[in-house]
Every structure is written in C-alpha cells, then in structure tokens.
Simulated assay, not measured.
Amino acid sequence: MPGASYASITINGTRIIYPERAREQTLRLENNDGSPVLIQAWIDEFDGTRPARDAVSPYLVMPTIFRLDPGKGQSLRIRKIRPLPNAEQESLHWLNIKEVPPAPDASDGENYLQFGILSRLKVIYRPESLDSGAADAATRLRWYRSSLDGRPGILCDNPTAYYVSLAELRWQVAGKTHRMSLDTVAPHSRQQWGIPAELGPLAGPFTFASVNDYGALVSLDAELTPR
C-alpha cells in the first residue's frame, strides 16, 4: 500500500506576535504545488497535536477550513476574542495548519494510505506594557552549570517577561566546535538541558542563537554565571 505525503503550502512566517492593541493579525499561505489542497487552521493552548475539536484558545482563526488552489494564496486572519489571564508577561499559544492533499489517481486499482501534514507556529501575545524590551530579552538570560539525570548539563534562567526562543548552543573543546539544540524558555522560568557525553564538558565562554520576532537567528556570546 503506497503512502502519499508531501507539503505544498508555503507559510510566510515562522511565528505570530500579537500586540495587545492589535485588532487582528494575518498570516499568508501560498500553494506553490500543481494540485489543490484542503487546509484546516486552529489555535490551541496545548503544546501537542490534539485535534481541533479539543482545542482551547482565546483566538479565532478565519477561515478555519478552506480549499487552496494551485498558484493561489490565502491570508489567515487571527483575532483575539477573549482576554488572556496574565497581563504582566507574554502568553504562548500554537497555530496549527493542517493540509490534506488530493487523493491520488486510483485508476490503477492500488490502495493508498494518505496523510495530512501539520505545521505548528507560535502565537505570542504581548501586553502593551512589554512593547519595548523583546529585542533585549535574550541578552538578559543567565546561564549556570547543572546536572541532569547524573550527567553534566546547562541551566538557563529567564528573568524577563518574554518567551525567548533558543535554537543552538556552541562551544569549543580543544579547538573543536560542539553544538547542541535548545528550545524555548518561558517568562520568569528556568529550563535545563543535559549535555551529551560525547560532546565533553561546557566550560568558559560559549555562543548561543536566539530567534527574534521576525524569525531570524541572532548569535550572542555568554559565559556561565557562578552560583
């Protein structure tokens, strides 16, 4: 039974920043493939892949289900319809965009297993009181040596009211560059990661990459903070 799974939609953005004063935000989708696709879009507070019918969100996405023909585009309109609980820090939800390709030609009599493709983007609500500090949030992170499950690790403390998306950590050991992947650190919280044994210890200065509001990587130098 052959499988049919491919992505044909271009999403013009990597995240959505929703300022408190905004009436709505938009995200453009383009179908650069030669076949139409069915799109379903929804926002959820849950960091996972539960279906749209179970989603909980203060946002409305319009349109929710639509067909996108080859060579055409469609803007998703995202509107906040309920207040968010904490006005002192950013709030994070997830935009889910699921595309279902057309059924393949079954004239040859074969059966096909067809998959929908799900893309997920961060939706970050930014209260008006936080309008000016997002660009500097990554520079205010504090880094500590830690231990995780009995192996060396690194702990990141985020004292700011912003979500800081981290992509990568790089450091040198005996002239060799080591890399490990990181992820998002929530406002006023800590996140730690174990360092794979084959990478060796982290000591001295290092470089980390954060993702700004426009989806671009920004490299910053840092050092471990003494306890």
Score class of each variant (00 low, 15 high):
P101G: 06
V61A: 11
H178F: 01
G3M: 12
I9E: 01
I117Y: 04
S91P: 07
N158K: 09
S210V: 01
R77A: 14
E128G: 13
P159G: 13
R142H: 11
D157C: 08
G194C: 07
E20Y: 01
G153A: 12
R67Q: 14
L68I: 09
I11N: 03
A167E: 14
E88T: 12
P85S: 08
Y112I: 11
P104L: 12
T139E: 14
K176E: 15
T177H: 12
G13Q: 05
Y18T: 05
L113A: 14
A209E: 08
R50L: 15
K176N: 08
D183M: 04
P159E: 10
P102H: 05
H188V: 13
E198N: 13
R170T: 06
V61E: 02
Y125M: 00
L199V: 05
P127L: 05
L29D: 02
S165M: 08
E223F: 08
L27E: 04
T49N: 10
Q192A: 12
A103M: 14
P36I: 00
A52C: 02
T225P: 03
P187N: 09
S107N: 10
I11Y: 09
S165D: 15
G13R: 11
R28D: 02
Q114M: 15
D33V: 01
L166S: 05
S57M: 12
S132Y: 13
A222G: 05
L121V: 05
I43L: 11
A87M: 08
L92Y: 03
D221S: 11
Q89L: 15
L224F: 01
V218C: 03
Q172S: 15
K122V: 05
S147F: 00
E168Y: 02
S91M: 12
Q25W: 03
A216P: 00
C156H: 02
D108C: 01
F66D: 09
Y144N: 14
G194V: 10
D149V: 12
D54P: 01
A167D: 15
T14H: 06
S210I: 06
V100R: 11
R67S: 15
A197K: 15
W171H: 11
I17Q: 04
R82E: 13
Q114Y: 00
P102F: 05
A55H: 10
N96I: 04
E90D: 09
A167N: 12
S189D: 10
G48D: 14
F208N: 03
R227C: 06
G34F: 00
W171D: 12
A209D: 07
D131Y: 15
A7M: 06
N158A: 09
P36N: 01
T184Y: 06
A55E: 10
S165A: 13
I124Q: 04
G215C: 10
Q25M: 11
K98C: 10
R82C: 00
P83F: 07
L141S: 03
L202N: 01
R126C: 13
R67I: 14
A174P: 01
Y112M: 04
W171L: 08
L217E: 04
T26V: 07
I124E: 00
I39G: 11
R126L: 13
V185H: 06
N12C: 07
N31W: 01
R28M: 05
R28Q: 07
S219E: 14
A137R: 03
Q40G: 15
G3P: 00
G71W: 03
V123P: 06
E128D: 15
L202F: 04
F66W: 13
G150P: 06
N111A: 13
G116P: 10
S75C: 11
A106E: 11
P70I: 00
A106M: 15
L169Q: 06
G200M: 05
P205W: 11
